[in-house]
Simulated scan of single mutants.
Amino acid sequence: MRNIFILIFSIISFVFISCNDTVLPKPTAYLSLEYPKKKYKKLSIQRPYSFDILKSTTIIDEKNNWIKITYPNLKASIDITYRPVQNNLKELLTEAEKLVFKHAVKAEQIIPKDFVNSKKRTFGTLYEITGNAASHLQFHVTDSTDNFIKGSLYFYVKPNYDSILPAVNYIKEDILRLVETLEWEKSPS
């Protein structure tokens, strides 16, 4: 009988002791990404164009005045292609837009943003592509007479727009800085 009393007392004590804490649901977790503070430098490779790039990026020199700006920590790159304008501006613009709208199958929305800087002779469009497309930002810039560049942002991971959106926004600032600081090299007269 004494053993039963001890057992019942133990069970009751255990129930009262263990039920003191109130159970609360866990708060919603948010992804906490920290990006380094931005510091820029001029593109160090000789090209028919120049612009500011983020110091923490790596430049890969490619043929035909093309370059790849890589973000090693984000597993991303901005691929820049250059083409001289030789009475083919309409063709270059059409080709650039075709590459953007190839993503329409996976894209939820494609938002164009035009920019014009008459003083620097830079005219172009930035396309923001939402959804699980392969490229989330594409742009082209021209002086309309001699030079044309096209850029595309790619991540080396399976596209999941919600997951990479903070990185897309981080790199979007760099693309806007690139376009704002873009200058064409003077062609020999």
Rank of each mutant, 00 (worst) to 15 (best):
E62K: 15
N160H: 12
K186E: 13
L126E: 07
N20L: 15
F123W: 05
D162F: 09
S18K: 12
D146G: 06
D174A: 01
E173R: 08
V23T: 14
P84T: 07
K150Q: 13
I4C: 06
Y170V: 03
I8A: 15
P36N: 07
I53F: 05
L92I: 03
R83D: 13
Q109E: 11
N132G: 04
I129D: 02
E185V: 10
V105N: 09
S56N: 14
Y82R: 00
E34A: 09
S18T: 13
T58R: 15
H140G: 00
L126M: 09
S10I: 11
S13T: 15
F155I: 08
K158I: 12
N132I: 02
A107T: 04
T122N: 14
I129P: 00
S187Q: 13
N73R: 10
N117S: 07
K90E: 14
D146H: 14
S152A: 13
P25M: 08
F148M: 04
L74K: 09
V85C: 03
L178P: 01
N20V: 15
N3F: 13
F123V: 01
F115E: 08
N87Y: 10
E180N: 15
N147T: 05
K119V: 13
V23S: 11
K37M: 12
L24M: 12
S144D: 08
T22N: 14
K102C: 00
I4L: 14
L54F: 12
T142W: 02
V100C: 02
T58H: 13
L153N: 03
N65G: 01
T22R: 13
L182A: 08
L178Y: 07
S77Y: 06
R83I: 05
S163T: 11
F9W: 06
K158C: 00
E91L: 10
T181A: 00
D52P: 00
K75C: 05
I8N: 04
N169I: 04
K120W: 02
E34K: 11
K63P: 07
T130K: 15
K106M: 10
P188K: 11
I149K: 04
V15Y: 12
I12T: 13
Q109S: 10
K39F: 13
Y161R: 01
I8E: 03
I12C: 12
S144C: 07
K41W: 00
G131K: 04
I175M: 09
I110V: 12
P159R: 01
M1C: 09
F115W: 07
D143C: 01
L126T: 08
T22C: 06
Y170L: 08
P112N: 06
P159L: 03
K102F: 14
I80A: 03
I4P: 00
L176N: 10
P159S: 06
E97N: 15
L7Y: 13
D79Y: 12
T181M: 01
P188C: 02
N20S: 15
T58L: 15
N160S: 11
V15G: 07
P84Q: 09
Y30M: 10
K158P: 01
F16H: 07
Y156E: 11
K120Q: 13
D143H: 03
Y154F: 12
F16K: 05
I11E: 05
E128Y: 12
T122E: 05
Q46L: 11
I129V: 11
K102S: 09
K172M: 07
S152G: 07
N88G: 04
K186R: 10
E108W: 02
K75H: 13
A134V: 08
